[in-house]
Design a protein around this nucleic acid. Structure first.
Lengths: 208, 208
DNA sequence: TAGATTGTTAATCGATTAACAATC
DNA sequence: TAGATTGTTAATCGATTAACAATC
C-alpha cells in the first residue's frame, strides 16, 4: 500500500483528511478538487496533492478526487479496514472514559478488557467490561489476540507495565502516562500527554 | 519575556524540557550541560541550545545550565507562574476524568466549574464541583474570571458552545470535540483529537 | 590559565509551496 | 476539442544540525 518511509508530518495530517472526507461523503458530495478541499481545510492545494501522492495517485486530471474512493483509500492506509483489539491498563477516570468512548468501536477499535491493580476496582463493571486483576494480563493478551495496549495509569507504574506488555509481543502502545516509555525499535508508542497540551495552551495565552 | 514569534516546533518541545528538568530537580541534580540533557532526552545538544536561545541565554559557558533556574524560567515562559481558571463543558466520562486530574491543579490550572445540558447530570457532584446548567455559563465565566474553557462534548454541540464562550471574551479553548473550531484570530484553540491519535497508532502498526 | 560549554553563525536537510507539463 | 485539474518537478522556505568563536 505504501512505500518507503512517509514523513511524520504527512501521517499526522491523514486523520484530518479522513474526517473531512467522511463529512463530505455524509453530505452526499461525490467529487472534490484539491483546490476546493484546500479552502475547506485551510491548507494549500499543493500540500494536499503532495500528501496524497505519497501513496500513489488517487485522483484524475480534469476531474479531481472521488470522495468515497479517497475516503476508503485513506481509511485503508490508516489500517481502519481491519479490526484492532485493545485493552486498557488502569480503570481510573481516564481509563473508564476511554472505555466508554464508543466511537472508536465504529472504526474497528474494539476494547476487549480493562485491568487495574486496585482490589477496590477489580470486579467492578466499566461499560460492558469487568475490571480484571493485573495478574491476568499476559494470559489475556495471548488469548484475545490483543494488538494495542492503552496505558492509563500514573507514570510510576507505566514503565514496568510497558515492559510487561512488550514482553508479550505487543507492538503498539497508546500512552497516556506522563513519561517517555523506553521500548524496542519495533514497538510504536503514541503519546497523549494531556498536561503538555494544556501547557502549550497556557503558553499561547500568555504570549498574546 | 519572549520576542517575535517562536515556532510551533519549539513551543511543542517546551513542556517536555520542563518535565525532564523537574525530574532532574527532584533527583537533586544542580547543573546539566546541553550534551548531558541531549543524551537523556534523545535529541541533539544543538537543538536544545537553539531552543533555549529563543528566549535569551539561560546558561553559562564552561558550566552548562542550572537545573532549578532553567526549570523556573521555562515554567514562566509556559505561563505556569500564574493561575489559570478553567471550566469544563460536558460532564460525561471525559469531562469527569479531566476534572479529577488533580495534577493540573499543582501547575496552577484550577477547575472552577463543570457544565452540562443534561438534566440528569445537573446538580450531580463531580469531585468537588457540582454540575451546572448551560444557562449559567456566561454569568459564571464573568463572575469567576475564567480564562480557559475545556470543551468535552460531542462535536454537534461544540461549535455553538465555542461561539458562546468566545462572545464572553474567552481567549483560550482546550478542545476535545472531534471538530475544527472556527474562532477569531485572537482566540487560541488547542485540540486533543483522541481518535486522530489512535489512527496514527493504527497506521504505524499497519506499516510495520 | 586551561578546559569546558555556551551562544550564535553557517551549512545541511527536509518540508512546503509554486509552477507547469501530462492527461482526463 | 478545450478546459480543468492532477501528478510531479523545481523553487522556496523553515527547521535542524554542525561548527566554532566567545567566555565563564
Amino acid at each position: 500500500m505504501q512505500d518507503k518511509s512517509i514523513s511524520q508530518a504527512v501521517i499526522g495530517r491523514l486523520p484530518r483528511y479522513y474526517r473531512y472526507l467522511g463529512d463530505l461523503k455524509d453530505e452526499g458530495v461525490e467529487r472534490i478538487s484539491s483546490k476546493e478541499l484546500s479552502i475547506l481545510m485551510k491548507v494549500t492545494a499543493s500540500q494536499i496533492r503532495q500528501d496524497f501522492n505519497n501513496f500513489g495517485g488517487f485522483g484524475q486530471q480534469g476531474y479531481g478526487y472521488n470522495v468515497s474512493y479517497l475516503y476508503e483509500e485513506i481509511g485503508k492506509i490508516l489500517g481502519l479496514n481491519e479490526d484492532h483489539h485493545l485493552i486498557i491498563i488502569g480503570a481510573g477516570n481516564l481509563g473508564r472514559a476511554l472505555t466508554n468512548y464508543s466511537n472508536f468501536g465504529n472504526r474497528g477499535f474494539i476494547f476487549e478488557g480493562i485491568f487495574d491493580k486496585s482490589s477496590e476496582l477489580i470486579g467492578k463493571k466499566v461499560g460492558l467490561l469487568t475490571v480484571k486483576p493485573m495478574e491476568e494480563l499476559e494470559a489475556f493478551i495471548e488469548e484475545h489476540s490483543i494488538d494495542i495496549v492503552v496505558i492509563a495509569i500514573p507514570k510510576t507504574g507505566a514503565v514496568s507495565v510497558a515492559d510487561r506488555v512488550v514482553k508479550c509481543g505487543i507492538k503498539a502502545i497508546w500512552n497516556f502516562a506522563h513519561v517517555d516509555l523506553l521500548v524496542p525499535p519495533d514497538v510504536v508508542v503514541e503519546n497523549v500527554h494531556l498536561s503538555d497540551s494544556l501547557m502549550k495552551l497556557s503558553y499561547m495565552l500568555t504570549v498574546r
